[in-house]
Design a protein around this nucleic acid. Structure first.
Length: 617
RNA sequence: GGCUCCGUAGCUCAGCUGGAUAGAGCAACUGACUUCUAAUCAGUAGGUCAAAGGUUCGAAUCCUUUCGGGGUCACCA
């Protein structure tokens, strides 16, 4: 479908060519919405053509305006303000647009481009429950998956579950050491929370052990040998914690032994590992269900952690990698200022990078996705830069389609969330809280009080989730954002529920029309458009490009903010123009059609960012 | 220290592929519910776009420097 910009761009170029036949290439015309204080719908900036026409901006604007008025049917008038050419577009063009939207329920959805994209998100560790940071990650991944689907991609949603390693062994060990060890069924604890509890428990026991050790001679010796100049004992022991874990700790030793047993496939340990991870997956799945997200393909680190050795061989053969005397394998990325990076340990075992190299190749083999998006926090920017650079140098077919959707951390007003200080905002708690808030407001309002309880519950959940999801997704992913757990998530103003409310207004109006037996399928003769009506149509027509922009920039916040703009404009329209009291039947028809179109675009836009619309609220 | 991201109203954020007088929400203040639902609307007030240079017809936006904050620079994942 044609938007006004796609019609005007070539038209402006053609007009300039005809008027001034410049020798240089004509740049892409700069076309935007006209500021509301001037007459017109779209504005062309004429400054770029001043040199070509060798006249002043006002003259150029005048000439260009006249030429466009003659050559473009959709333009009915123009005026020139300084270097800006304001064009008035025919009402009919906007009404055709409205038809277009209404006749196409999936307006904005592009046809299949026969390309495949794989989106990885969430990717939790199995030793603790999901928290607010994961929620941002999950919502970004989920939104991008929807947005790509909308752009015509076939999408594979995936996560890699970090189900192995020393961390889960810590939880397992603490569980084993507990005489009254809990289980989810017996003690009615959500599995991921239970395992997380034992992870914390391990750390507690370890800290106690460490404190005791600090009084021993071995500790004093380590302090004297390895402290930096003038370093206090406190600062030294803080720094030395990992060394202690590896070299002295009994608990550390036990955990490491467990990991070795796990690696050698010890039946007992594997059984315990399976059991505890199973609990965690039940817990995760319940959280995913609550957030209404899912995955198409799962990868487990326990399956992938040995991958990548072939890639290493390949790189060594092609001399892209080199081996040090001790047997470790490296790549030299000094020429692009990324330094030397280790790819394989001297004992021949994998590092994080080895695994990711291998996993990327396996995924491509599995899915043939030329595009792969990793939703991972910005603390891993360097890792992914290196990973992608290596893939590029190895000339992998998918190398140019790799993208790291990097996002900032969510801070508390007091600073970072810290698990050790218990300031981590738990995902389940947060979801429950925000739904509770929605329930309270809903009760206060009383609008849905006489509905079936099940229906009420569904609506309240939709509202609560909208508040939470919108709050997070409206912020540009790159930015760090602040979340105050003490003040509840807003439901007024620039929020998800506000947009839902405007949507509900459109649906109510349509219901009322039905009750009144008003048929608004055909516009018939053409009533003229009020300013606000025109603005709405203009904004709605931009929806397809907005989604494309979001896809190209890997930024769902673009869609979120667009939906707010639509909702706000609709609300203004609602306030100033009464639908059923319009002066003519045609006007009523037009406004009902507008309602329907707004509802339609709001619903699909919000769905892209994982927010569902209630029918009433 | 190197690299990198960020700095816009009291607070939370838009605007950044250069365009007209920098926009929203929250908080504050004024008004509007017998009216298609007030989870709303209309309005007032609030700005040295961190600072300084530069590029140009035009800079919050691009470049340089400085300041402030975060991240990262592991044979951890």
């Amino acid at each position: 479908m044609n938007t006004i910009a796609t019609i005007l761009e070539p038209a402006v170029k053609k007009a300039i060519q005809k008027l001034y036949s410049p020798e240089v290439e004509i740049p892409k015309p700069n076309i935007g919405d006209t500021r509301k204080e001037f007459e017109g719908d779209v504005t062309v900036v004429v400054f770029p053509y001043v040199k070509m026409g060798k006249k002043n901006p006002a003259q150029i604007g005048q000439e260009l305006g006249e030429e466009l008025l003659n050559s473009v049917d959709e333009i009915v008038a123009f005026n020139v303000q300084k270097g800006f050419l304001n064009l008035v577009i025919a009402d009919n063009f906007w009404k055709t647009n409205l038809d277009n939207i209404l006749s196409n329920p999936s307006f904005g959805e592009k046809e299949s481009n026969n390309k495949k994209v794989l989106v990885e998100y969430s990717s939790p560790n199995t030793n603790k429950p999901l928290h607010l940071g994961h929620i941002r990650n999950i919502l970004l991944g989920w939104s991008m998956a929807n947005i790509f689907k909308n752009e015509g991609y076939s999408v594979v949603k995936t996560q890699i579950i970090n189900d192995r390693g020393i961390a889960i062994c810590k939880s397992m060990l603490a569980w084993q050491l507990d005489d009254n060890a809990l289980t989810p069924s017996k003690d009615e604890i959500k599995g991921d929370h239970l395992v997380g509890k034992y992870y914390v428990q391990f750390d507690k026991m370890f800290q106690e052990e460490y404190k005791k050790w600090q009084l021993t001679e071995a500790a004093t010796q380590a302090f004297n040998d390895k402290k930096k100049e003038e370093e206090t004992a406190e600062s030294f022991y803080k720094r030395y914690k990992n060394n202690y874990f590896n070299d002295f700790s009994n608990l550390g030793k036990a955990a490491k032994e467990m990991l070795i047993k796990w690696e050698s496939n010890d039946t007992e340990i594997r059984a315990l590992w399976k059991q505890m991870n199973g609990w965690v997956y039940d817990g995760f799945n319940s959280t995913y269900d609550k957030l209404k997200v899912n995955f198409d393909a799962l990868y487990y680190e326990s399956d992938t952690y040995l991958l990548g050795k072939e890639v290493i061989e390949e790189g060594l053969n092609s001399k892209l990698f080199y081996k040090k005397e001790d047997g470790s394998v490296w790549i030299d990325l000094d020429d692009v200022d990324m330094g030397q990076k280790i790819l394989l340990r001297s004992d021949g075992t994998s590092v994080y990078m080895t695994q990711d190299l291998g996993t990327a190749c396996v995924r491509y083999d599995n899915h043939q996705s030329e595009k792969m998006v990793y939703v991972v926090g910005d603390e891993q920017d360097y890792h992914f830069k290196v990973l992608f650079e290596i893939m590029k140098r190895m000339e992998k077919p998918f190398a140019s389609g790799l993208h790291h959707l990097s996002y900032g951390m969510i801070d508390l007003p007091t600073g970072k969330m810290k698990s050790r200080e218990g300031t981590v905002v738990d995902a389940d708690d947060l979801v429950a809280e925000v739904i509770e808030e929605a329930r309270k407001s809903s009760e206060e309002k009383g609008e849905i009080a006489n509905m079936e309880p099940a229906e009420q519950k569904e609506i309240i959940e939709k509202i609560g989730l909208a508040a939470l999801k919108y709050f997070i997704i409206k912020v540009n992913p790159k930015k760090r954002m602040v979340f105050d757990p003490n003040s509840s998530v807003d439901i007024q103003g620039h929020t998800g529920p506000y947009i839902q409310y405007q949507y509900v207004r459109t649906q109510n109006t349509l219901r009322t029309a039905k009750q009144k037996n008003i048929n608004f399928d055909n516009l018939g003769s053409s009533p003229s458009l009020e300013l606000t009506e025109k603005s709405i149509l203009q904004l709605l027509s931009q929806y397809p490009q907005i989604v494309t922009e979001a896809a190209n920039n890997y930024d769902p916040s673009v869609v979120a903010n667009y939906c707010y703009d639509v909702a706000k404009l609709f609300s203004k329209f609602w306030g100033e123009l009464k639908i059923f009291q319009a002066e003519s039947e045609e006007k009523i028809t037009l406004r009902l059609q507008l309602c329907k179109a707004v509802g339609q675009v709001l619903e699909s836009g919000m769905n892209l960012i994982g927010i569902e619309m209630p029918s009433r609220m």
